Simulated scan of single mutants.
Amino acid sequence: MGDYNRYFLELSYNGTSFHGWQIQPNAVTVQELLDKALSTLLRQKTETVGCGRTDAGVHATQFFAHFDVQRDYDKPQAGVVEPAFLNSLNALLPFEIAVRRAFKVGQEAHARFDASLRSYQYHIHFVKDPFRHGFSWHMRDQLNVARMNEAARILFEYTDFSCFSKSHTQVFTNNCKIFRAEWEETSRGLVFHISADRFLRNMVRAIVGTLTMVGKGTISPRDLHSIITSKNRSNAGTSVPACGLYLTEVRYPYV
């Protein structure tokens, strides 16, 4: 064990202005700004590890990251979890990023690898609305929600979702266990809810693109079987705009 304390942060962010969560060269990201704010506040170089990575323009209503603080930091036990710490940290962050809470965890706790479930929502609206621009996909086509839900239920029959994964990603497996996949009609449009133990890069946006093809009548629900078993990304629908996608829940055994 090293001589440090590990803390989790729970945060949310409007992803419109960022090139995703993960630090990238020549692009502003959520992780970059969070690391800078923590380093300034803690007066030592601080690097976070996120629960995953979101693409450019994707939002998060719940996101977790962990960071370590050396024990020679002045009052680490109290300074990191007191309300004053959160107030100071949020003051150093742009209004698009808000840290909700910070709490100490064990040294082996990991924001990415320990997550047991992740949930996303994808929002679609059909009437021009300036207050939804950048936060929902404005569609002009009418969609058959019953058929889309019929197709969504087929996802439960499979675990290999290579057909919905961005090409050339460095992962050991394309297997995921989906626990929920359904469309909800609301007064403002549609919301697609999906939960799984893990997700592949671009997976949710590709699934939504495929299911909206079903909703428009371009393909039938049963076509999902051949698309998934093909393991070929080109057979699935296009990736829908990032603005409608939200990471909404990350679950841990100890949180």
Results as ranks from 00 to 15, higher is better:
199 F>E: 00
18 F>W: 01
216 K>M: 06
156 F>W: 11
63 F>C: 04
204 V>E: 03
145 V>T: 04
72 D>R: 15
91 A>H: 14
232 N>H: 10
43 R>K: 15
59 H>A: 04
110 H>C: 09
54 T>Y: 12
16 T>P: 05
215 G>F: 11
33 L>W: 10
180 R>I: 02
173 T>W: 07
4 Y>H: 10
238 T>C: 04
81 V>T: 03
234 S>Q: 12
138 H>D: 03
50 G>S: 04
3 D>Q: 07
92 L>T: 04
91 A>D: 08
122 Y>S: 02
45 K>S: 12
30 V>G: 05
47 E>C: 08
248 T>I: 06
163 C>W: 11
205 R>G: 11
252 Y>E: 02
53 R>Q: 06
114 D>I: 07
75 K>L: 14
242 A>I: 03
130 P>H: 07
224 L>N: 06
77 Q>D: 13
240 V>R: 06
61 T>Q: 08
14 N>C: 07
209 G>C: 10
46 T>M: 06
17 S>W: 07
136 S>C: 04
78 A>H: 15
126 F>L: 03
133 H>K: 15
147 R>C: 09
42 L>E: 00
211 L>N: 01
248 T>A: 03
29 T>E: 05
230 S>K: 09
96 E>S: 11
85 F>D: 01
201 R>A: 08
189 G>K: 11
104 K>I: 06
190 L>H: 07
28 V>H: 07
244 G>Q: 13
205 R>F: 04
71 R>W: 10
97 I>L: 01
131 F>E: 00
26 N>G: 08
222 R>K: 14
205 R>W: 06
204 V>I: 04
210 T>N: 02
122 Y>W: 03
247 L>G: 02
251 R>C: 14
218 T>V: 08
158 Y>A: 00
52 G>N: 09
81 V>K: 13
72 D>F: 15
212 T>C: 11
167 S>W: 05
19 H>T: 01
30 V>S: 04
56 A>C: 11
21 W>Y: 09
236 A>W: 10
235 N>M: 15
207 I>Y: 06
216 K>E: 05
172 F>R: 05
230 S>N: 08
4 Y>A: 07
208 V>F: 10
169 T>V: 10
178 I>E: 02
223 D>I: 02
222 R>W: 11
91 A>T: 00
77 Q>R: 14
26 N>K: 12
176 C>R: 04
65 A>K: 00
16 T>W: 08
114 D>V: 09
32 E>L: 14
162 S>W: 00
140 R>A: 08
186 T>A: 06
42 L>S: 02
31 Q>Y: 09
23 I>N: 12
154 I>F: 13
233 R>S: 03
157 E>Q: 15
217 G>V: 02
145 V>P: 13
252 Y>I: 00
227 I>L: 05
77 Q>G: 13
177 K>D: 08
182 E>A: 07
14 N>I: 05
20 G>I: 01
255 V>W: 13
212 T>H: 07
191 V>S: 04
190 L>V: 00
92 L>G: 09
110 H>F: 15
146 A>D: 14
47 E>M: 10
141 D>M: 11
125 H>I: 01
111 A>W: 14
